[in-house]
Design a protein around this nucleic acid. Structure first.
Lengths: 324, 324
DNA sequence: TTGTACGCGTTATCAG
DNA sequence: CTGATAACGCGTACAA
């Protein structure tokens, strides 16, 4: 398809190695006569030479490609994360292949098995797997892995937000508006973030209704239904999708209870329902994860467990309740 | 890192070729003695053999990897598209690398140059480039390319939604509620979809205000501001982000003019503002694009220009205006 | 300063 | 049925 080193060597009456040296521009190319170098570079230009990165990767064992595994990149939160990662990576000459585990542990394992064979330099993952053993079973031990938004015992590199801090802030905001009894709608307890957030919620309020399920819109809706006519004063959700689902169902039922959730819905300012949200700094999470992954590649000494701050925001409706 | 064909050959006292034949399971493996085959498969199992797909790709010139270039995967619409594509691809044994062109023509060119070197089997792109020449300048002519959501003169394979049909439907809905004068907020006219949609809008209504800019939230907000106190009866936007931006600004200004847009905001049902939206079937677009890309790889005969239907939906507030 | 030769792990051709 | 052997395109000791 494209000219190869051999083509250029032939064209310039030199050897492949010389051409390689010139074109890789490495220190080796320092000791090369200006004349041949010029000759080679001209020919490369003229023949439209493009290095075959596959071949190079086979040789150097570096693909300059990372993989990202998340449950579903259609989730806007993961979309933002992936976007930020891709940009950070591209800037440093890396590509990103994305994988949807679809909340399916089997599928996740399949990716875990396949990706190393494809040759990736590192892996960033928001895992379903909860143990290091499950995660690394099929991975070469020397493959850099970064766990994002989860904490997995035994995994050295991870980056998360301050879950408890954020959850506590949410609780405080609800307390401030005199809430005592809440409903908690939560993602799977096996999942780090959901478990932590729900726990914190329980510690602060009297939980008169609780619903658990996949972290999806549908669970949020079902969660609202499950409340029935119990005397809840606010609804707390452990992520954005759950919050949105609960909000939908609640609105449809003509109610406007305050909602507290993580990474709350876009455009909440336009909604009449009081919403307070603890938002994670997705960009910092993404950049941090990239940093950790690439840092491992350069065997850099780093703090392996990063914790990012969160920020609590609320919409106007909540602001009115809250006063001042 | 992992066992190679050579390792297995050594272990079983056979040759690399035999091992390869057994393990690739191709028709060639039909003529292989059951005994050696068993021996080999056992050894492969025992040594934990994993084919090095890089080496295989170098040989076969197939990477089983496609690339997707979009302006920004953080845009939920692109997120959904990417997600659907990835799932369709994974099902057929392909991976997906995603690239954000960030609405930057230079960056797009950079990806166009780099991706073929990395070895991809095909490319799916929602291009900024508007001519075939710009698009294919750096691409090997034999690389399968599918253009999504745009029409580029000279590109054989593309998949779009029925823009005019959808735009007309939107107009009809507005007409039905007696709208005559509208504001049009549009993405760049160079971009196929924005141009077509805006044109159709202009053909149906008296446009008393028009604003053009990058297809971003900010442009939507600015678009609203630009209306000033002109007598508009509805706001028409050429995509989701613009619609959302306009909606925000309008709500903040305490107005509730009807909004018509494409791929309208999530959760519009919860909003008091009347919204009518023409939604594209992202999944079908995604699956169709994958079909077209993989079809080219198998040299399948296909209709190269697919047009998908759209669907008009509205929220309750709009429904009330509209009546039955 | 430059060229030769080998290896990365596969697939594919051609003898035997 | 099986085994050498030659690619694929590139990097790099080692030799000249």
């Amino acid at each position: 398809v494209s000219a190869t080193l051999a083509d250029i060597a032939k064209d310039t009456n030199t050897s492949i190695s010389t051409v390689s040296r010139v074109l890789t521009g490495a220190p080796a190319s320092a000791r090369i006569s200006p004349s041949t170098r010029q000759k080679v570079m001209d020919a490369a230009q003229r023949l439209g030479y493009r290095p075959n990165l596959l071949a190079r990767s086979l040789r150097t064992r570096k693909t300059h490609t990372l993989a990202l595994i998340v449950s579903d990149i259609a989730n806007p939160w993961f979309g933002m994360m992936a976007s930020a990662m891709e940009q950070a990576l591209h800037q440093r000459g890396y590509s990103l292949v994305v994988c949807n585990s679809c909340e399916d542990a089997e599928l996740e394992q399949e990716y875990l098995r396949m990706l190393p064979q494809k040759g990736i330099d590192g892996l960033i993952v928001v895992p379903l797997a909860t143990t290091c053993e499950q995660l690394q079973r099929h991975l070469p031990t020397e493959l850099p892995v970064v766990v994002v938004d989860r904490l997995v015992e035994g995994m050295e590199y991870s980056i998360i937000s301050d879950q408890q801090g954020g959850a506590v802030s949410l609780c405080e905001e609800l307390s401030r508006i005199k809430v005592r009894k809440v409903a908690v709608i939560s993602g799977p307890h096996e999942v780090f973030t959901h478990r932590l957030r729900a726990q914190t919620f329980r510690g602060h309020f009297e939980v008169v209704a609780e619903h658990e399920g996949p972290a999806q819109l549908e669970t949020g809706r079902a969660g609202w239904e499950a409340i029935g006519n119990r005397p809840v004063e606010a609804v707390m959700c452990t992520n954005n999708l759950l919050g949105q689902g609960a909000l939908e169902a609640m609105t449809r039922a003509g109610k406007q209870l305050p909602i507290a959730c993580f990474d709350g819905p876009a455009m909440m300012d336009l909604l009449p329902t009081p919403i307070v949200s603890c938002v994670q700094d997705v960009e910092r999470l993404a950049n941090g994860a990239v940093e950790l992954a690439l840092g491992q590649l350069q065997e850099k000494q780093m703090d392996g467990r990063l914790v990012m701050p969160t920020r609590v925001v609320w919409n106007e409706a909540f602001g009115r309740l809250r006063g001042k």
